[in-house]
Structure formats: C-alpha cells, structure tokens
C-alpha cells in the first residue's frame, strides 16, 4: 500500500538510519520495555564474564576437572542416571518459558484471570527450579564439595559451580518475586485501570532471559 509519501522515503541503509534517528523515540515500545532490553544487555555481559572466567580457570588449574556426568548423577531405582536432575530442572525451566509466553498472550487479550493464573504457574515452576537447585547444592555439599575444594579434583570446580549456579539462582528467585508482584497487579485490576498489559511482557522478557542464560550454563558447565 505505497502512498506518495512512502515513495519519497529514503530506502536501504539511509532509510534505516533515518528510522532510528526519528524524533521522540527510537523504538516504538514502552519505556519500561526499552529499559528492560538495555538492562538485559548489561546482564548478558555479567553472565558472559562469569562463564569466560570459569572456562579460564578450568584451563589454568593444574588438577583434573571432575567428570560432570558422574558428579551430577542420581541413583534412581537402583540405577545411576547421569545428569537426570539437571535434565528435569532444565525441562521445568523451559516449560515455564512456555507458560510465561501464554501469560503475555492472555495479557494482550486483557484476560485478567487467565493472565494472572499463567503468571502464578510460571512463578511456581520457577520456585520448583530453585528448590531442586537447593537439593542439588545439599547433595554436593554432603559429598564434600566446597567452594575452596572438593574430593573429586580441581578446587575451581566447586568454586565455579557455586558461584555461577548461585548467581543464576538469585536471578530466578528475584524473577519469582517479580512474577508474583506482577500477578498480584494483574489480579487486582491495576493494568485494567491503566488500559494496557504491556508490563506483563516486560516481566516476560526478564524471565525468558533467565531461561536462556540457564541453557548456556547447562551447555558449558554440565555438558562440557
């Protein structure tokens, strides 16, 4: 549907530059959403530095690195299954991303009850994840893994494990609180009065980000 005005607009690279350089606002999104994107970019750097440092000390240490699939194995029904707990945790977290997406969807339809319900389910999955992580920490601590050393090999194994999963766990816990607050606001009709559920999506961005980071931790720490 090309109008005359559209035909006059610059195209290609120049058009992109002009769109971005528009007056008032560069991106047609709410302030909170823009800010969340920028925050997540900054947070990406935090986790990248954590992971890079972990990889560096893993290479610099002179002792053997414990075998993750043995350390993180659980004995279920008399059989030792490698990484089973982590697999379940990962599954739960990814499922929670699905329910979060549904919450955002219901939000755009202004379906108050369903949005709140989906947010609560997402928060519940998040809390389950944190609970299972606490279980995993306890198990490792019982086996003698400490931040400063462990019976299986390089001390950096325990240090990186507690630091990185701990930091991620804090993010998930903060996310659970954030989701609960958002759910409460949805339920109490705050966004109906405001006329828009945009903010639910902002919480969603954060939640998906935390999930995505977990995928990287999973790949670099548990699978390597």
């Amino acid at each position: 549907m090309a109008t005359d005005a559209a035909a006059d607009m610059p195209r290609g690279m120049e058009g992109v530059v002009q769109d971005w350089a528009n007056d008032k606002q560069t991106f047609q999104v709410p302030w909170g959403k823009a800010m969340m994107w920028i925050f997540l970019l900054s947070d990406t750097f935090i986790f990248s530095v954590f992971l890079t440092s972990y990889m560096t000390v893993r290479v610099s240490t002179t002792e053997v690195w414990p075998n993750a699939s043995e350390v993180f194995a659980l004995t279920l029904f008399g059989q030792s299954i490698p990484l089973i707990l982590i697999a379940i945790m990962t599954f739960i977290l990814i499922t929670s991303s699905g329910t979060m997406a549904m919450a955002v969807n219901f939000g755009y339809r202004k379906d108050r009850a369903k949005t709140a319900a989906m947010l609560l389910i997402t928060a519940f999955f998040g809390a389950t994840f944190v609970g299972m992580q606490a279980f995993e920490w306890t198990k490792l601590i019982e086996e003698g893994v400490r931040p400063w050393g462990n019976p299986m090999g390089a001390p950096q194994f325990g240090s990186s494990f507690f630091m990185i999963t701990g930091f991620h766990g804090l993010h998930v816990s903060a996310g659970v609180i954030y989701l609960l607050v958002t759910a409460w606001r949805v339920w109490s009709g705050f966004y109906d009065r405001k006329g828009t559920y945009e903010t639910v999506e902002v919480a969603g961005l954060y939640w998906h980000f935390v999930d995505l980071v977990w995928v990287f931790i999973f790949a670099f720490f548990y699978l390597w």
Partner: peptide
C-alpha cells in the same frame, strides 16, 4: 540511555 532513546521532544531527532 532510555531517556535519550525514548523521551525526546518533537523534532529532536538523534542527529
């Protein structure tokens, strides 16, 4: 950052 990107007045393009 968000203020510069998202809250300029009318006519205030980035350039």
């Amino acid at each position: 950052v968000t203020t510069v990107l998202q809250a300029r007045c009318r006519g205030m393009t980035l350039m």
